[in-house]
Write a protein that binds this DNA or RNA. Structure first.
Length: 744
DNA sequence: AGAGCGAGCGTTTTT
DNA sequence: CGCTCGCTCT
């Protein structure tokens, strides 16, 4: 095998096959190539059987590409290796072993919205008001508990903020009972259940330990505790483990990713060899300088300097727009110019932003200019109502005890089955420990429903039952066709005959193409496999390389990708870094890493933009240029307008009693109870801001020209801005002030 | 049972 | 602003 294209460190990483290896790979250092060549090397030079090789990737797309590249090097023979995301590998194992865990092998996978529905149901059953305890919070707590391997029982002993732990533990417990009863697993369960399997069945564990003699993990910095334990199980007996990661690119801590996994590794695998890849092959020196300048501000990181011999390259282009439309017009203008003059294809351009909502304006302007584009993520195709409904029909046919799906489609299209009837079914099911489907069938026999409801329900149950019985002989496409023509769903849309209904039908037809694609590319054409595939599909998975279209996505989604020209947009305080992140971590460490990831996606040209004003939540917001802009020395940049990023620097300096001061230049986020609460909580847990010139205390009176006199309940001072939560006549308001507060 | 309307809330990021 | 939820009326 020809390894001459590799540098010294890369060569070492490829050929150190025995024992454990930690590869610290900077952005653009060719780690994917190294990982691929390493696997190919194992097969062709070391004679390792492909089915003894396991590799975890971050996305299915990465897995697919890696597999392809290995096959190109060593032939189709490589097909036997197991290469996929943690989730898809776990599903593969769980299908075989489901019965050992009290599941049937045709279990379905719940996504975040299904999980939410089920949690709501649990809370309703436990008589817990979702006004007091928000469902989203419960959801996050349960998910992080699962990622930290904390069971419902253990949950009570853990402190999770100031929330009523015992109540949440109860919800968690009921949720877990229900999800098992529904023969369903959520994303976290997929990992958890494999751990359980390995913990309880030594022979199963030994089988897999024995099978996978070489284990690889890509994007290691973004693994969580549960995933680490899984890696450990797989690799601890033979210790042939190769992990690749970069602490500077750790951007998923909010999903449970745990950077200390790197240190656990050194404990569990004491002989681990460290290999650093610091030469960058992707970007110009200017781009790397900017990236280094941004990431350097993070303390507590291991020193690492990316370098390249790609040459200095063009300076980074900076543009400060007056608002988000001007920002988008500038970006699109540059795309037009560059694609005409410099020979870039549309697909060479990527627009990267912090939040999905930012894509709208760009979409607008691109559309106006007839430039083709693709958006990754955002309003996902599979999350559209009609598609979710179709999927629910499919799931119910696959697994009739799935109550969440049952509830979703039993009266859609309208079958005159209302709240009363549903209540009867779920009550009956609860008492007799039956699924909604079973309950419905029994109650129907005994004539528990009105004539209209009975007729509707009868047709529905028969339809599901007919195809449920035949599912083994039918493909995913057969089932789709059945739902299309026999469930009455599409018929009712045709009757509706509105523009909206028509577009729904269009989407349903589009969904057929998805199934067609699936049947073309997959060997296993069953409904079961189709459902698993779409649940575990990530947004970037559907991104194709040769599409001649500008690509738009969040920076999170762009991880692992690269583009000749990158526009990093919306570089404003409160947007990027996000205001949400600032309340948890005032230094915005993870946001900084995210910025680093964004910058290092660029190969040749990098544009940085901000808007001084933008509309959000239907209101005009004014935000200073992002601190990240200020961190990049201007030597590496050039400004399109000639102006450098203007920090809105208006120092708040006053002393004395606060009640003597007033301000009228206060603009606000909309007053939301939860945002005030979150804000107040975060301030209570952090240290009070220090500012010599400032003498603010909670309890102080403040006068505002619009809102009158109020009492400060919380405040925070950033370098150019003061945020105050204050109460007027019992109403709490959250306000921000840019201009100095003046004497009364 | 289901349509229709107003209130209130939210947005980080996703397998 | 736009979506979801819950209430009310038919």
């Amino acid at each position: 095998m020809d390894l001459s294209s590799l540098n010294k460190m890369q060569h070492l990483a490829v050929t150190t096959t025995e024992g454990s290896v930690l590869i610290i790979a900077g952005a653009g250092s060719g780690k994917t190539g190294v990982l691929t060549k390493r696997i190919a090397y194992l097969i062709s030079e070391k004679g390792v059987y492909p089915n003894n090789i396991l590799a975890f990737t971050f996305t299915n797309k990465a897995a697919r590409e890696m597999k392809q590249r290995v096959e190109n090097m060593v032939g189709d023979y490589a097909n036997g290796m197991w290469l996929g995301t943690f989730h898809s590998i776990c599903v593969r194992i769980l299908r075989r072993e489901a019965d050992k865990l009290g599941y049937k092998s045709d279990f379905v996978i719940y996504d975040t919205s299904d999980r939410k529905v089920l949690i709501k149901e649990c809370m309703k059953e436990l008589n817990i008001n979702d006004k007091q305890i928000p469902v989203n919070m419960v959801q996050n707590l349960i998910s992080s508990a699962k990622n930290d391997l904390i069971s419902p029982n253990e949950f009570k002993d853990n402190v999770y903020g100031e929330y009523p732990v015992d109540v949440i533990a109860k919800i968690y417990e009921l949720y877990q009972t229900k999800i098992v009863k529904n023969n369903a697993m959520d994303f976290d369960d997929l990992i958890w259940n494999v751990l359980k399997l390995f913990g309880e069945y030594t022979q199963v564990l030994e089988y897999y330990q024995n099978k996978f003699k070489y284990v690889h993990v890509d994007e290691y910095q973004d693994t969580n505790k549960a995933q680490y334990k899984l890696i450990r199980y797989f690799a601890l007996s033979h210790k042939n483990l190769c992990v690749v990661g970069d602490e500077d690119q750790s951007i998923y801590s909010w999903r449970g990713a745990d950077i200390t996994n790197i240190y656990s590794l050194e404990k569990d695998f004491p002989d681990i060899k460290l290999i650093k890849l610091e030469q960058n092959y992707r970007s110009t020196q200017n781009i790397l300088n900017a990236a280094n300048a941004v990431i350097e501000k993070n303390t507590e990181r291991k020193e690492k300097q990316l370098w390249t011999d790609n040459g200095i390259g063009e300076k980074i282009k900076y543009y400060g727009a007056s608002n988000e439309y001007k920002e988008a017009e500038f970006v699109v203008g540059e795309i037009l110019k560059k694609s005409f003059k410099s020979g870039f294809k549309y697909s060479d351009f990527a627009i990267l932003y912090r939040t999905n909502a930012q894509s709208r304006v760009f979409e607008d302007i691109l559309l106006k200019n007839n430039i083709p584009y693709t958006i990754v993520g955002g309003l996902k195709f599979y999350e559209r109502k009609e598609i979710k409904d179709f999927i629910s029909y499919m799931r119910l046919i696959q697994n009739s005890v799935d109550d969440v799906s049952f509830m979703r489609v039993v009266n859609s299209p309208k079958r005159s089955i209302g709240a009363k009837s549903l209540e009867k079914m779920s009550e009956f099911g609860r008492i007799n420990d039956l699924s909604m489907f079973q309950s419905a069938a029994i109650l129907l026999e005994s004539g528990a429903f009105s004539k209209k409801a009975s007729d509707g329900l009868n047709g529905f149950l028969n339809f599901i039952m007919t195809y449920s019985n035949k599912k083994a002989e039918l493909s995913a496409m057969d089932i789709y066709n059945a739902i299309y023509s026999e469930s009455g769903y599409v018929d009712s849309l045709i009757v509706e005959n509105t523009i909206e209904a028509k577009s729904r039908i269009e989407n349903i037809k589009e969904f057929k193409n998805v199934i067609e694609e699936f049947e073309k590319s997959e060997e296993d054409k069953t409904l079961e496999n189709f459902l698993a595939m779409i649940s575990l599909k990530s947004d970037v998975d559907s991104l194709t390389e040769d599409d001649s279209a500008v690509v738009m996505m969040t920076i999170h989604s762009a991880k692992g990708l690269e583009f000749p020209v990158v526009f990093l947009v919306g570089l404003e305080e409160n947007i990027f870094p996000s205001s949400m992140s600032l309340s948890e971590d005032s230094e915005a460490k993870e946001e900084r890493r995210l910025c680093y990831v964004g910058i290092t996606r660029a190969e040749k040209l990098l544009y940085l933009t901000n808007a001084y004003q933008r509309n959000r939540f239907g209101r005009t917001e004014v935000n200073s240029p992002s601190r990240f802009l200020a961190d990049i020395p201007f030597d590496y940049m050039e400004s399109i307008t000639g102006e450098s990023p203007v920090l809105v620097k208006q120092k708040i300096s006053f002393s004395g009693e606060f009640s003597k001061y007033k301000t009228d230049d206060i603009f606000s986020k909309k007053d939301s109870k939860s945002s005030i609460k979150r804000f107040t909580n975060s301030l209570e847990s952090s240290t009070k801001p220090q500012n010599d010139n400032l003498d603010i205390n909670t309890g102080d009176k403040i006068e505002h020209t619009k809102f009158g006199i109020g009492t400060i309940v919380a405040y925070d001072v950033k370098k150019d801005m003061i945020t105050i939560a204050f109460e007027t006549n019992g109403i709490k308001k959250l306000k921000k002030s840019l201009s100095p507060i003046t004497k009364l």
